[in-house]
Design a protein around this nucleic acid. Structure first.
Length: 481
RNA sequence: CGGGGCAUGGCGCAGUUGGUAGCGUGCCUGCUUUGGGAGCAGGAGGUCCCGAGUUCGAGUCUCGGUGCCCCGACCA
């Protein structure tokens, strides 16, 4: 046995760390809070990027790149923004051996430097909308870090759009959070609740923040993506006005939205098990590993394996053969399970004689015999689709099983230790803060999707779980990452 | 920023009253193996985190420093 992973039941947090390291997704760096994303981890990010980037382009967005360094005076322009971000910023004070006349902030997010440009680019309503996305790294000097979930430097995409009206910006905010939900559910097989954040949880400088919130296997919530309505806050801070069709001057309306490499952490914590990573096929660079059992007529077995790989690759199913003789088949089984390859095919002399092979799926660990004929690629793609669907179904079932509606604060305190809690809230920040102080649970989301609202009758008025005051609606509470 | 832990071959660890460093795994070579992390034999590999001190002698004792991890408060 090589890298042994701590079991989830024994220590969930340690399980996560062991998994990330032994599946070679990421490694610690000697720089505090920073990580090295290894090829196995980066491959997942590349799959995510490809799918998201396509979805952004399909909705009219274009990519650009803005500088890593932001002048201090820019960051300082939006009061709430600097208050929120300044404490966690890295600041460059020297360059070329000289002290800089103005300090440069390493971007924690790019609103300010982008709006300094937008101010130059926008004069008329004819210049709007601007729909720009950038793929970049950002730095936030976090107190405490966790691989993928929270690191001092991370990779993300940030969309920054400029609009002529509040309504148009609102539509953009909802369109993008909708895309994130679609991506999470269709690609990551991760069910999410889409909705709004309370004021205390919203982005520094935003009027409104929408999010997608997911449940991890320990019942805790993870914010997987955000979309912000920035109102005219940044336009005002940067004096960015435009002339309307009617000839009036107005400040530009803004949105920003992002997802980060944190999604990789979400993916791991949602689906993986004590044997290692479990990857949804749509995010697996390598979907099928073929392991020849090299006994008897080795070259025939190896040729059989290669033929399967070639056939699958021709059908667009990424497959590869591990025919190395350095490791035993058993070793390879364990290794590729650790790495989360969705499907394994075993083929040996016995199979070859009977013109079949064994398929073992990563999610359920079930083994099936498959005939080696023209139907093989189809059967395999069916299994892969089935894995993708099964992961989503399982995660959704888990979320449902670990979501509880409560009507008393006593019930609340117990339930919130085990998952999501649906409860009435009086809408005040005071109540929210006290609940957080006493239970560590926060309001994760005010759901904004019909199915979820109906399922838990979120809009039904009632009595606040904490204060006993009238409450217009229920909200989702949970402990969060 | 508080509390705790760790620092010794690539990785994981042991190292007793101070005496010149060892185990597992991985790596290299060869042979035998191969349907759930194979076996045997041989081999390579270490500034013991850094600095100072005590001592004939420090991985070990003393003082100082650094780094990382974990748990909490803050955050995507």
């Amino acid at each position: 046995m090589a890298d042994k992973i701590t079991s989830r039941s024994q220590d969930y947090s340690q399980w996560y760390i062991d998994l990330v390291r032994s599946a070679k997704l990421a490694d610690y760096s000697d720089v505090r809070g920073c990580m090295v994303i290894r090829p196995n981890g980066y491959a997942i990010w590349e799959k995510m990027q490809a799918a998201l980037d396509r979805m952004f382009k399909e909705t009219g967005h274009v990519n650009a790149y803005f500088p890593l360094f932001i002048p201090e005076s820019y960051i300082a322009k939006e009061a709430e923004h600097i208050e929120g971000f300044a404490p966690e910023c890295a600041v460059v004070t020297h360059g070329g051996g000289e002290e800089l006349t103005e300090k440069l902030y390493v971007r924690p997010t790019s609103e300010t430097i982008i709006w300094a440009s937008y101010k130059k680019w926008i004069q008329s309503y004819r210049d709007l909308p601007i729909l720009i996305n950038q793929w970049a790294n950002v730095v936030r000097w976090e107190m405490r870090t966790r691989l993928f979930l929270r690191t001092a430097e991370f990779l993300w995409q940030e969309g920054h759009t400029a609009h002529a009206t509040r309504e148009e910006a609102s539509e953009e905010v909802m369109r993008m959070i909708g895309i994130y939900k679609k991506f999470a559910e269709e690609y990551m097989a991760l069910p999410v609740i889409m909705g709004r954040k309370t004021d205390s949880e919203k982005f520094a400088g935003a009027d409104e923040t929408y999010c997608i919130e997911a449940m991890m296997q320990d019942g805790k919530a993870l914010q997987a993506g955000t979309s912000h309505h920035l109102g005219q806050n940044f336009a005002k801070a940067f004096d960015c006005q435009f002339q309307t069709a009617e000839g009036r001057l107005d400040h530009v309306w803004a949105t920003s939205w992002g997802v980060s490499t944190r999604l990789i952490g979400a993916l791991i914590m949602a689906h993986s098990d004590d044997r290692g990573l479990v990857l949804p096929p749509k995010l697996a660079t390598r979907q099928v590993v073929i392991i020849p059992i090299l006994r008897g007529d080795r070259s025939a077995v190896l040729a059989g394996a290669e033929t399967i790989a070639r056939t699958l690759n021709q059908q667009g199913i990424p497959a590869f053969v591990d025919g190395s003789e350095q490791n035993s088949p058993g070793w390879k089984f364990a290794e590729y399970e650790l790495q989360g390859i969705p499907l394994r095919i075993e083929i040996g002399p016995r199979d070859l004689a009977e013109n079949k092979c064994i398929a073992a799926r990563r999610d359920t660990l079930e083994k099936t015999e498959l005939a080696l004929d023209d139907t093989l690629p189809l059967r395999i793609s069916e299994i892969l689709n089935n894995i993708q669907q099964n992961l989503f179904d399982k995660a959704l079932q888990f979320r449902t099983d670990n979501t509880r509606e409560v009507s008393t604060y006593e019930e609340f305190r117990l339930a919130v230790e085990k998952g999501f809690v649906i409860a009435h809230w009086d809408g005040t920040a005071e109540t929210e803060a006290k609940i957080k102080e006493e239970t560590k649970a926060t309001i994760r989301v005010l759901p904004a999707e019909d199915d979820y609202i109906q399922q838990y009758s979120m809009n039904e008025p009632g009595t606040c779980i904490f204060s006993g005051n009238p409450a217009k609606q229920k909200v989702v509470f949970a402990k969060a990452y």
